[in-house]
Simulated scan of single mutants.
Amino acid sequence: MTQNQHFKIFVSLFLFWFMTLVPEQIINFFCYFFILTLGIIHGSNDLQIIDSFEKESDLKKNGIKSYVSIIIIAILFFIFLKKITFYVFIFLSSYHFGEQHFNHKNFEGKYIKNMLQILHGIFLFSILFLNQKNEVTTISESLFSIIVSSNFITVLSILSGLCYAMILIYNWFLYNDYKTLLEEILNFTFFYILFKATSLIVSFSIYFIIWHSIPSIFDQIEFLYKKKSKSLVILYLKKSSLLWLISLFLVTLSFIYLKESILFNSFIFAILFIISIPHIFIINIMNSYFKNRSRKS
């Protein structure tokens, strides 16, 4: 297990323990706060990433148009094709989470990494849904007009878990990569306990911030500035400061007016949906550029 994973588990366990000492309302506020700050900030420099692409690339030439077009398409799908949008969003988010999780992991098999990336995310979502059925059903119905049945969640968790295990075991037998198998067993044991013991917003925020957003921020800094340092973290945050202030305003305003927690959760996930779709595509392209640049150097 890498030092980075040790750190993520340690911080997650610390937060898990800390939350047992603090009233639920305060915990929820901090979860919303970090989702709407660090969570949004990790996707707030997409245009800066586009601007850093090679001048001759099509995305560089049509960057803003492409980015805005994806947002408009996402909103239109969200308005007119809600049920399809739900499944597309889960699929894309699953791949995105898995892509970040295995971003620095090399596999000998040609397609193993791609399969593990999507299965990691699907299995993660399925065990989250499995342990938070009531909240997930309410939010999916209010946002996407779709009822996620218990049977669907159970079948999805079993099938995705079996497929994920089979690919990991296959990778172990073929390439003697037992470490990845053991790491994922430990990771998902921890995720299951976390998702079982906490609410949806707490479960999601710990994974989203500690396991996804913060590592993504450091990857983006390395891509944008060719290295990592404290000063570059500050520079990155400065470039995101406007969105940071807007998010602080939104979390305060929505916390005051959306007194029902389920409405507030729906509001949070609606914001994440709108900003996530273009971000997923940009980060995927960034990772491709990163790999090509690394090969050239």
Rank of each mutant, 00 (worst) to 15 (best):
T2K: 08
K113A: 00
I275A: 02
N171L: 05
S216D: 01
S254F: 07
S241Q: 11
Y192P: 02
S157Q: 10
L245A: 13
L253D: 04
E99W: 10
L232Y: 12
T2H: 02
S145W: 14
T85R: 00
F290V: 08
W244I: 04
L186R: 13
G109F: 02
Q48E: 12
F30G: 06
V233Y: 14
L128C: 02
E222N: 15
F86H: 05
H279V: 07
Y87K: 07
L162A: 10
F97L: 03
Y170V: 11
N176T: 10
F195N: 03
E184T: 01
T189L: 08
V88K: 02
F281L: 03
L181E: 00
I210A: 00
I122G: 05
N284R: 13
F269M: 00
S229K: 12
F188K: 03
Y111V: 07
L21M: 11
I271M: 09
A165E: 11
Y178Q: 13
F77R: 02
L21C: 08
G98L: 00
I50E: 02
I9M: 10
N28R: 09
I158V: 09
L263V: 15
L245G: 13
S294Y: 13
I246L: 08
L250A: 03
F77K: 04
K228F: 12
L168G: 01
L224F: 06
I262A: 04
F290W: 11
D58E: 14
F188T: 03
N114I: 03
L272V: 11
T138R: 15
F18V: 15
I118M: 04
I70G: 02
Q3R: 13
L258P: 03
G109P: 03
F14Q: 05
Q220C: 07
Q132T: 07
D177I: 01
L47I: 12
C31Y: 03
K296T: 10
I84Q: 08
F97E: 01
S57Y: 04
L124E: 13
H42G: 08
N106M: 11
V88C: 05
K55Y: 07
Q132V: 04
L263K: 13
I75R: 08
T198R: 14
I127F: 06
S94L: 05
F123D: 05
I71Q: 12
S150E: 12
Y87I: 01
